[in-house]
C-alpha cells in the first residue's frame, strides 16, 4: 500500500486531492492507526486555527484615519463642478445671442423709420425708440430664447438645491468625534 505522506494529508484536509487519492486515504485510514492518528490530530490543528483570535484595532482608529484622509483630500483634490460650468456657459451664450438679435432688430427698425420721414421731432424719435423696443419684445425668436433661458435657470436652480441638500446630509453623517 502506498505510504500516506504528511503533504498528502494536508492536501486531504484542504480538499485538494482528486477522487482516486481520496479513496487511497480512506483505505489507509481503515488499516493504519498511525495514519488515523496523524489525520485526526491534523484536523484538530486545522479546526483550532480557525479560532485564532482577531486583535481589534485601537478605539477611534477609523475616525483618526478619516480625518487624515479628508485633510489630504482638501489639499490634493480641488473638486470641479462640470455641471455648473456647463450651465454658466449656456447662459453666457444665450445672453450673447439675445444681444445680437436685439442689435439686428433695432437696426432694421431704425432704417424703416428713416424711410418714412427725415423730419421728426424729439418726441417722435422717442416714440420710435419705444416702438422699436416693443417690436424687440414682440419678436418670436426673443420670446423663445427667453423661455429657453428661464427653463435652464429653473433646472439649474433645482440641481443646485439638490446638490446642497446632499452635501448637508453628508456633513451630518460624517463623524464629529
Amino acid at each position: 500500500m502506498k505510504k500516506i505522506s504528511d503533504e498528502f494529508l494536508n492536501d486531504y484536509i484542504d480538499n485538494q486531492l482528486d477522487s482516486n487519492s481520496i479513496i487511497e486515504v480512506a483505505e489507509a485510514l481503515k488499516v493504519d492507526s498511525n495514519v488515523l492518528n496523524r489525520l485526526t490530530a491534523l484536523k484538530k490543528v486545522d479546526s483550532s486555527l480557525h479560532d485564532i483570535e482577531v486583535i481589534p484595532a485601537p478605539e477611534g482608529f477609523t475616525n483618526r484615519i478619516i480625518k487624515l484622509v479628508i485633510a489630504q483630500s482638501k489639499i490634493i483634490i480641488p473638486r470641479v463642478s462640470y455641471f455648473f460650468i456647463s450651465v454658466v456657459s449656456v447662459l453666457v451664450v444665450g445672453v450673447l445671442l439675445v444681444s445680437a438679435v436685439a442689435f439686428v432688430t433695432a437696426e432694421k427698425s431704425q432704417k424703416q423709420a428713416d424711410k418714412i420721414s427725415f423730419l421728426k421731432d424729439g418726441t417722435q424719435y422717442l416714440n420710435e425708440i419705444m416702438s422699436s423696443f416693443h417690436l424687440f419684445l414682440s419678436n418670436d425668436n426673443i420670446l423663445k430664447i427667453g423661455l429657453f433661458l428661464t427653463i435652464i435657470l429653473l433646472i439649474s436652480g433645482y440641481f443646485f438645491l439638490e446638490s446642497h441638500k446632499n452635501f448637508r446630509n453628508k456633513l451630518n453623517k460624517f463623524p464629529t468625534t
Binding site: V54, F61, T62, I66, I70, R79
Partner: peptide, 29 residues
C-alpha cells in the same frame, strides 16, 4: 468619485484583521 468619507467602510472592514497580523509581525502595539 470624490466621496472620501466612504473610505471609513474600507477601514472598518480591514482594520482588525490587519492589526492582528501587524501585532504578530511587529510584537509591539
Amino acid at each position: 468619485r470624490g466621496n472620501a468619507a466612504d473610505f471609513a467602510l474600507i477601514v472598518d472592514r480591514y482594520k482588525d484583521k490587519a492589526f492582528s497580523l501587524l501585532r504578530r509581525m511587529l510584537k509591539n502595539e
